[in-house]
Design a protein around this nucleic acid. Sequence first.
DNA 1: CTGAAATTGATAATCAATATCATTATGTAA
DNA 2: TTACATAATGATATTGATTATCAATTTCAG
Lengths: 145, 145
Amino acid sequence: MARKREEEIFADYVRRKNLKHSVQRDTILKIFLKSEKHLTVDELYQLAKKAAPGIGYATIYRTSKHFCASGLCRELKCEDGITRYEHLYGHSHHDHLICTKCGKFIEVVDSGIEKLQEELARKEGFMLTKHKLELYGLCKSCRKK
Amino acid sequence: MARKREEEIFADYVRRKNLKHSVQRDTILKIFLKSEKHLTVDELYQLAKKAAPGIGYATIYRTSKHFCASGLCRELKCEDGITRYEHLYGHSHHDHLICTKCGKFIEVVDSGIEKLQEELARKEGFMLTKHKLELYGLCKSCRKK
DNA sequence: CTGAAATTGATAATCAATATCATTATGTAA
DNA sequence: TTACATAATGATATTGATTATCAATTTCAG
C-alpha cells in the first residue's frame, strides 16, 4: 500500500544523504503518514508527544524539513501565517479551497485554470515555475450555521 | 489627480475614526502614494527615514495598518514570508506574476480564471470570500540572463 | 565492541510583528 | 490664545514562529 511506499522513499533519502536512522523520526513519519490532514507543526508535535512523551519541538521542525527534502511533503504557507505540511506522494498538483471558519482544506484541480495561467504567463513573457491558488470562503457545513 | 483622491480617502478615514493628523503619517502616505511598487515594511521605513530621520519602525507598522483599514492598501503575504503593501485605490481586483529572481510583481487579471474559480467553489458548496493566485517564475528579462 | 558522526532535547538566538509606556503633538472648547 | 483631554510617536519590551547552538546520547560501520 501507499504508506509502505512512502516509508521507502524516506528510507532512500536517509541512505542517500548518509543520515542515520532514529526512533523519533520513525514516530513522526508514522504520524504524518497516518494523517491525511494538512498538519501544522504544533499538531504534529502534540500527536508525537503522545507516542513519544520526551520528544522535543526542534525535532519536529528538523524532521519536517527532511520530509520536504525527501519529496514526501511540502510546506504550505497560508494567509494565517501558520505553516502546514501536506502530502506529496500520490498527490498530483492541486490547489486549495480553505474554509475560514473551520479551517478545512479541500484539494481541488481544474485543468482549465491551469491552462489559463500558462497563457497569462506566456503573454507577459514569464516562464512559470510554480503557482499558488488559494480560495478562501465558507465550506458547505459552516455556511449553514 | 489620483494621488489627491487617495489623500482624501485617508483624511476621511482619520476624521471618521476620530484620529489626529500627524506629520509622520503625511510623510509615509506621500512615500507610499509616490511608489507604485509593492513595498515591504522595511522599504517603506528606509524611504521614510530619508524624509523624516527620526521616524520609528513602529510608526511604519501602525501607519500601514491604518492605510489598510482606510481601504488605501492591502497586505500581501507571499512565499518568502515578507509582507508587502499594495495600492488598492484605482486598482481593481488582480492576481500576481512574481519573478523569483528580481522580485518584480506584475498585476494580472483573467476573467476566465475568475469564473472557473467560482465554479470550482460552487461544486464544493463553498461560498467564496476571497482568493489568492500567485504565479511564480522568471520574468522576461531575467530568463534571458 | 569501539569510535566517528548523526540525532536529540533543551535552550538561546533571530526575525517579523505587536504591545507597552512615558513623552510629545494635536485639536477643540472655553 | 490657553488649557486640557486624547491621539501619536519613538524607544523598547514582548510575543510567536522558526532556526541555531551545544552537550549528551544514539546509531552503525569496521
